[in-house]
Design a protein around this nucleic acid. Structure first.
Lengths: 195, 195
DNA sequence: TGTACATCAGTGAACGCGCGTTCACTGATGTAC
DNA sequence: TGTACATCAGTGAACGCGCGTTCACTGATGTAC
């Protein structure tokens, strides 16, 4: 054979990686398969060798995003100090870096508006990713001594994603970076996190 | 003349109203001009008699949404009891009614993800609408005795929009309606609102 | 060792559909004379 | 009072483009004999 046995699998992963970035950067409806394929250094005709349809790509890419962003995060912090982990998470989430690089960031803010109109499979994957993330945060909050941790984790993610979205929408000027910093402090105070 | 002098203006408003609802319900990219026009009981060829382009319609519709939703709200509550007004606002915002009827609701949750990729004019109108809303909330918070009211208003809108978006995304089951209720109470506690 | 054939990731052109935009036309009313 | 013409909101067909999807083909390698 021309290619080794894992070649196809690697190509598929490359397409997924490119798509996962493009979806977060440009929104699903603006992502064209031809662009994804050429970013993966392929021609767009070859797409259907790897995926049944654009819908399947999107569904797989959503799982890919959550794994990429949070797979190691949840694992890494499962044994760390809960207060420190939460503080670091908030600092990252409401950072200018995260604001400016949606393509490598949390999938929740960008996708949350699209979910209602996604095909079922994609929606299920999004819900699964969010559920896992909230469960992880709830575990940290519980270890940090916060009451009603699951509800608080839900609320924390809602405020993090909401603040980031609003900051992105308002355009990222200095007043917005100040608002981000203020949000970081307010959230830590609110959830009783020191650091 | 066949039509009275305000006929054209009324038709334009009807198109705007239909578009403002459709954009909030289906996201901008899914709104087709032909659908908007037929919902306004016209054929789609007549669209360009009223608007220069789809972009112009979207820009105008964004202003229309904020006016429709918040024009009277901010006015009405400018003399009411601040605590009661804020309490009522939170109750409305995180209600099942609002969750299920995005087409008549706050434009922020649905549009916030789209803003980054909108044409400049539409973005400016969105920012203007959000700014006015935050200013109105800040005035209420100040009268309610909350410190740093502008920053808190920003934070309040971020959490409201974030919570609603997350609840919509997670699908509206009973656990979600419970989460909405918990969010309402948590927010009132957080901002020191009684009622 | 050499020839014919199978395999299969990838290519690139073509197809079809949705949708924004354009345009020649309609039909009802008002105005000029 | 009647006829020709201007006005203008609205119609409906056509155009063009972007993009998802399909498909005949390529070209490198492995296998059969």
């Amino acid at each position: 054979m021309r290619y080794d046995s894992e070649h196809r699998q690697r190509t598929r992963q490359r397409i997924l990686q490119v798509a996962a970035a493009a979806i977060r950067k440009q929104r699903i409806s603006r992502v064209a398969l031809a662009d994804v394929m050429s970013a993966a250094e392929l021609t767009h005709g070859g797409f259907y060798l790897h995926f049944k349809s654009k819908d399947e790509l999107i569904a797989e890419a959503i799982t890919y995003m959550f794994d990429e962003r949070y797979g190691r995060f949840l694992e890494r912090f499962s044994n760390a100090d809960a207060q420190e982990a939460l503080s670091a998470f908030i600092d990252y989430y409401l950072s200018v870096l995260h604001l400016e690089a949606p393509e490598r960031g949390c999938p929740v803010p960008m996708l949350v508006c699209d979910v209602a109109h996604m095909p079922n499979d994609a929606r299920r994957r999004f819900v699964a990713g969010v559920t896992l993330l909230i469960d992880g945060l709830a575990a940290l909050l519980e270890r940090a001594g916060v009451a009603d941790p699951h509800q608080q984790a839900n609320s924390m993610l809602a405020e993090l994603a909401g603040s980031l979205n609003l900051a992105r929408a308002l355009g990222g000027g200095t007043s917005v970076t100040e608002a981000l910093e203020a949000s970081r402090h307010a959230m830590k105070r609110r959830f009783g996190i020191v650091g």
